[in-house]
Each structure stands twice: as C-alpha cells, then as structure tokens.
Simulated scan of single mutants.
Amino acid sequence: MSEYEKDKLYCPLFVMSPAFETMKGCECRKEMCAWWVEDKQKCAIAVGGERNRGK
C-alpha cells in the first residue's frame, strides 16, 4: 500500500461493490454521503451505525 493510500478513507459500501474496481473509486465522498456524521467527523457505517443508535 502506498503512502497515498494510507492517508485515504475508503467507503465500506464502495469497497464491497463489484462496480468499483480501483481503490481510487472507493474513496470516501464525505460531502456527498448521507452516512457521514459531520459533527463527529466519521462515517456511521465504518463505526457500526452510530447515527442510528443516537450517539
């Protein structure tokens, strides 16, 4: 894994999708994602659905 890839956040949904064949296509798109919890600066899916637990 390159230094570039170590600094990137990858979307778990994109990584699991066969439609995305490169890691570049799997990068998190915070500003366009309904699962991004802005006040906590993290992905609700990647941390186990915190958004739905009301935390």
Rank of each mutant, 00 (worst) to 15 (best):
K55I: 10
A34K: 12
V47L: 10
C26Q: 15
A46P: 04
Y4S: 13
C26A: 12
E21P: 01
V47W: 06
R51D: 10
F14V: 03
R51A: 15
V47H: 07
C28H: 03
C11F: 02
K55T: 08
K6V: 02
E31K: 12
E27A: 09
E38C: 05
Y10T: 03
E50Q: 07
V15Q: 05
D39T: 11
V37W: 13
K24F: 04
M32F: 07
V37S: 06
E31C: 05
M32P: 05
C33L: 01
W36I: 00
G25M: 08
A34Q: 11
M1L: 06
Q41I: 01
E3C: 03
A19R: 05
P18R: 06
P18V: 00
K24G: 09
L13Q: 12
R51S: 14
C28K: 00
M16I: 07
E3G: 04
E3K: 15
G25E: 15
A44T: 09
K8E: 13
S17K: 02
E27I: 11
M1E: 11
K55E: 12
S2M: 07
S2T: 14
Y4M: 07
A44W: 00
M1Y: 07
G54T: 04
E3V: 08
V37K: 08
M23S: 11
T22D: 10
Q41A: 11
K6R: 10
S2D: 15
E27T: 15
Y10Q: 08
S17R: 06
P12T: 04
K40S: 07
E3R: 13
S17Y: 08
M16H: 12
A44S: 15
P12H: 03
M1Q: 09
M1H: 12
M32A: 14
Q41R: 11
G48Y: 00
L13G: 11
Q41S: 14
A44F: 00
E38V: 04
N52C: 12
I45N: 09
L9T: 15
C28M: 14
M16E: 13
S17I: 02
Y10I: 04
